[in-house]
């Protein structure tokens, strides 16, 4: 029997097709192919942030999560692995990309394996992934694969990019297959901070045995 994995591609590309999406798709295809070789069935779902742009902006300035955005959140909640890909604008990840991840609950992506990718018009942006994007995904407590993907214009004709895609794909498959997320969540979920209704609306346990709960029930503050 083969194990089933859900890979979710998040792309902040704006063209159709965009090079950002193209890079993510090449990685996703390699993950699927490598999975098959290792008896893993990998299904791929894609979230195009471009289609959620208005709902992302609304969510940033209010508590209002639109229907399409909620679907994306639910999809990520069920992801076993994530490919997150963005164009670089003005020496940073697209605001659409960072805005989307800033909206998510802090605990939605805990321990999920992630491969990061970025595209740019010049190689001068090459360190954006490792220097800027990793921090965001560290905050979200994801596990980011060692190889980051970056493609400037000249990289698209360079076979070294393909080699890096293969590396990142294998790293992602290895993390997914190792069950890292499941182990962390099964054995350590309570050690992370949660709010009532966080983790995309699934974190509903209430600890009645806390200092604040004792204070709520007429006790005294420590």
């Amino acid at each position: 029997m083969t194990a089933q994995f859900r890979l979710v591609v998040v792309s902040a590309g704006t063209g159709d097709p965009s090079s950002t999406r193209l890079l993510a798709d090449r990685l996703a295809q390699r993950v699927t192919a490598l999975g098959t070789r290792k008896q893993l069935t990998v299904s791929v779902q894609t979230i195009e942030l471009r289609e959620l742009a208005a709902e992302i902006a609304t969510a940033l300035v209010s508590t209002h999560i639109g229907a399409k955005l909620q679907n994306a959140i639910t999809t990520l909640h069920h992801a076993d692995g994530i490919v997150a890909s963005t164009p670089v604008y003005k020496a940073g990840a697209s605001g659409l990309f960072t805005s989307f991840f800033q909206i998510l609950d802090n605990d939605l992506l805990i321990a999920k394996p992630v491969a990061l990718a970025a595209t740019a018009g010049t190689a001068r942006h090459a360190l954006v992934v490792d220097d800027q994007m990793r921090g965001l995904f560290a905050y979200l407590r994801t596990i980011v694969v060692p190889t980051s993907l970056f493609a400037a214009t000249e990289d698209w004709t360079d076979s070294a990019l393909t080699k890096r895609i293969d590396r990142a794909a294998l790293e992602l498959v290895a993390l997914m297959a190792a069950g890292f997320e499941k182990t962390v969540r099964d054995e350590s979920w309570d050690r992370y901070q949660h709010e009532f209704g966080s983790a995309g609306g699934t974190e509903l346990s209430i600890d009645l045995d806390s200092d604040l709960m004792r204070l709520a029930a007429g006790g005294s503050a420590n």
Partner: peptide, 11 residues
């Protein structure tokens, strides 16, 4: 959004 407040109301 705060379960502690609901708890206090209930208590």
């Amino acid at each position: 959004r705060t379960p502690e407040i609901a708890e206090q109301a209930a208590y």
